[in-house]
Nucleic acid binder design. Structure first.
Lengths: 349, 349
DNA sequence: CTGAAAGCGCTAACAC
DNA sequence: GTGTTAGCGCTTTCAG
């Protein structure tokens, strides 16, 4: 097979009878080129199928741009710990290319902490922002600030309604709720109700949960209309939620449970104590406690939101945007990954 | 946060009091450096934590290396069509960097065609080989030839036993069989047998099927020992396999079926005709016919082997190896992805 | 054994 | 408006 050298700027210059500087300007609209020169250059570029050499470009651009990242504190929560691992993982790759990332943390339980970190972030004068905005109002403030300063923004994990970031990277919560409902309806016993459980500490943060609930209910409504569902918000304290669960099981025959957060292990450990292994339990995220209960069969399915890859993709996307000036897809929804005890290990290389 | 420029070869040269040429030679063992100069340079490099700039390196290396790819003909089979899409997808990205890929096809049904293409491949004098060796003996011959010529080899989809390619990229068939068994045992009715079905056209090719069968049976044996399993090899012709299925269902009460290939739709369309929707069917791969039957509930689960990404990763791995001289993990097993009708769309972006 | 210098393809600063 | 030129960090001759 023939492998002709792919064309360079130099070739265009020769063919158009101009200098490479002019070609560069013509191709990148960096001002002051005669209109017909520009047209000629563009035409030739098209004809010989010119593709800029990204390697050379990024070598010359010693840009030193800094992107600020706002995420929940990883020590608080294993999910966010995994996201942080993703950040650290790819961060160093970019330093070589003059792209730096500064991480700011906030406390998942305190809006004020988000607001505080957001202010710090802004005063650090970044060239771009990546955020996981668990607090709607505060997130909206930060987004507005970025608009003002015309900073590019990528949101991941959670999207704030009525904003238009460069890209949203995360899972489709509504659809994942449907998946959970399908899994329960396939595996739970015929009789009994399904319970949708939220933990209240999270409810105040995350708009996701309601989306998940909506998705779940929509599936049940259309596909198994005879199945009754109950929704409960559990208190975050151990004593309290155990008590709440006890009452719930006393009052209802429950054959399937959907926990809308990564805290399925809490419900699982209760089921386990009570020897209620036949109740099918579905939750989210590969945290260590969830994995343990998945392995022993207490949790039947976990839906993996892959925070690590979400973070990695977020940084990569920013690099594509800043370094390569590529155009970015406005949203990258992740596959809704179904994890059972047998395929778990294949996700852990 | 401080962002010190990361050190360059130049810096090492200055600190060691030698020229950058010498540093380069010392660091890369390209001959003739005084032993103590070498040691000094290495020591300094370590101390200032020198990391070579890969961008600059790949800019200068106009290597023009060609890697030959041997895969089944994409027009024959949708699975391989997807793999080919993956190849084409990423191929162009590498041409810029002087890395070219030449694709050779073979007929999935004819060993001789593999052998012929393999010979053609070798005589094209590639600098490396990527192969999906569906024929064991012929694949072994090609692998041996590559060893002789000391060409790096990456195998994907199928690995030939007792070979040591640079890397194997694919799924763990044994484990995927276990996953299939788990899915069936969770969703099928209590009574009845499980059937493992192979199609004979494929059996002669691929060592995978037996692995999948072994995995499946091992799970059943340890987790649901009471469940009976039968194994059948179906003839590839429509009339024949329909007749075989008819007999099988007449002789056994079957509540779950595992098809070890991407041909689950064949069994599915039979079930569909016979109004046997309650029989749970699990198969492999997101081909269009499988997807249709997944959507309407005839197929319950598909295990996605993601040929597209397998191909992409194969090419990427070769690039990492040749361009960046990175060390390569000897095997990259893919996640065993469970696809149902509700999460299907999330895999199709 | 070592140093000097050319050049990969592109961008940006500076002349004209 | 356009041409020229100096690098980005590295590899690779080519002298010495």
């Amino acid at each position: 097979m023939k492998k002709p050298d792919n064309p360079r700027i130099k070739d265009i210059a020769r063919l158009a009878g101009v200098s490479i500087g002019t070609v560069d300007r013509a191709l990148h609209n960096r001002g002051r080129v005669a209109t017909d020169t520009k047209r000629r250059v563009e035409e030739i570029a098209r004809q010989i199928n010119y593709k800029p050499n990204l390697i050379a470009r990024s070598l010359v651009r010693k840009s030193r741009t800094t992107v600020a990242i706002l995420v929940p504190d990883p020590v608080q929560d294993e999910y966010w710990q995994q996201a942080y691992e993703g950040i650290v993982n790819v961060m160093s790759r970019f330093e070589q290319h003059g792209l730096f990332f500064d991480t700011f943390f906030y406390d998942l339980d305190k809006k004020e902490s988000f607001a505080g970190s957001a202010r710090k972030l802004i005063s650090s004068k970044p060239d771009g922002v990546i955020m996981a905005p668990n607090f709607l109002n505060e997130g909206r403030w930060l987004y507005g600030k970025c608009q003002e300063l015309s900073l590019p923004v990528i949101m991941f994990d959670t999207i704030i309604p009525e904003t238009n970031p460069l890209s949203f990277i995360g899972t489709d919560s509504y659809q994942s709720g449907r998946v959970a409902a399908e899994l329960l309806s396939m595996t739970a016993k015929k009789g009994g109700k399904f319970a949708i459980l939220h933990f209240d500490e999270e409810l105040l943060n995350s708009p996701h949960m309601l989306e998940k609930e909506r998705g779940f209910l929509s599936f049940i409504k259309s596909e198994c209309p005879k199945r009754d569902c109950i929704v409960a918000v559990l208190n975050n304290k151990k004593r309290r939620y155990r008590e709440q669960l006890r009452k719930m099981f006393a009052a209802n025959r429950i054959s399937g449970i959907f926990v809308s957060t990564s805290k399925a292990y809490r419900v699982g450990s209760y089921l386990s104590c009570m020897k209620m292994k036949k109740t099918v339990l579905v939750g989210y995220d590969l945290t260590s406690r969830n994995e343990t209960l998945l392995a022993d069969g207490t949790i039947r399915f976990l839906i993996n939101q892959n925070p690590r890859r979400q973070a990695e993709v977020s940084l990569n996307t920013f690099s594509d945007y800043l370094v390569y000036r590529e155009t970015i897809k406005p949203s990258k929804f992740f596959p809704i990954e179904i994890i059972t005890r047998t395929n778990l290990s294949s996700y852990k290389d």
